[in-house]
């Protein structure tokens, strides 16, 4: 109950943030703009609409996750509301979990609005609804949950600016972590290889959650890989949220 109350409160607070609406409106305008862009192309209209739509959801969703996620804890400290909360019979882990779930709920609503726009546009152009497109959006949402967990972790011990830099850097590194392993295999000695392998498993490999190509080109999706990717994201999110809880438990607010 306590976690749900904090989550709902975080959600209410987030939906009052004007930056959220600015990002959402911009994303919807970009989505609608893709229909104008396709008029200057020769062929491939549906592909372009799907590509741009999925990119919009991913990019603007990441912006929402980072901008709102980095302030989850630091805002409470800055406004001194945290001191009131931690004196109440609430465990610190409940506070962190509630904050995380509240932001995930906010993201869910935003992604749902953008996804409805994209699925509607794709339906208008293709005349059929695409399950693969829906699955690609679902995995983008999982990626956003992971990015939010990263932002929350940094927010638990760092300033908003540093948290934004760290989260954004890890978002980029997460899309390149596959290359890290390749690099080590090709060039490194034993120590480099071990370090690269360790880093590879610690960094989130966000390319595992990328099913955009399958959605856009209508390729068959391997259920096993998808299921494992889903589990991979869930384990990573759990580890990050638990790490944020552990840091927050030890933090001294005197």
């Amino acid at each position: 109950m306590t976690v749900a109350a904090i989550a709902l409160n975080t959600f209410r607070e987030a939906v009052r943030d004007r930056i959220l609406y600015a990002i959402l409106i911009f994303a919807l305008v970009m989505l609608a703009g893709s229909t104008i862009l396709v008029t200057i192309s020769v062929g491939g209209e549906v592909k372009i609409i799907k590509d741009l739509g999925l990119a919009c959801i991913s990019i603007f969703g990441t912006l929402i996750a980072i901008f709102l996620g980095i302030g989850l804890v630091s805002k409470e400290i800055e406004r001194r509301t945290l001191y009131t909360i931690i004196t109440k019979p609430i465990h610190r882990y409940q506070f962190i979990l509630g904050k995380y779930l509240g932001l995930v709920l906010t993201l869910l609503v935003n992604v749902a609005v953008m996804a409805l726009g994209l699925l509607g546009l794709a339906y208008l152009w293709e005349g059929v609804s695409s399950v693969r497109l829906f699955l690609a959006v679902l995995f983008i949402f999982l990626e956003l949950m992971l990015v939010t967990a990263l932002a929350l972790l940094f927010s638990a011990f760092s300033s908003p600016t540093l948290s934004a830099i760290f989260t954004l850097s890890l978002f980029v590194a997460g899309h390149l972590s596959g290359d890290l392993r390749l690099f080590a295999a090709r060039f490194g000695g034993a120590v480099t290889k071990l370090s690269a392998e360790t880093l590879y498993f610690l960094l989130p490999n966000l390319s595992r959650l990328n099913f955009k190509d399958q959605a856009v080109h209508g390729f068959g999706v391997d259920g096993g890989s998808m299921g494992l990717s889903f589990l991979y994201a869930i384990f990573h999110i759990a580890a990050l949220v638990l790490a944020a809880m552990a840091i927050f438990e030890r933090r001294d607010f005197k």
Partner: peptide, 8 residues
């Protein structure tokens, strides 16, 4: 991961 959009 945005190579599809870049190609478009």
């Amino acid at each position: 991961g945005f190579h599809g959009v870049a190609a478009d």
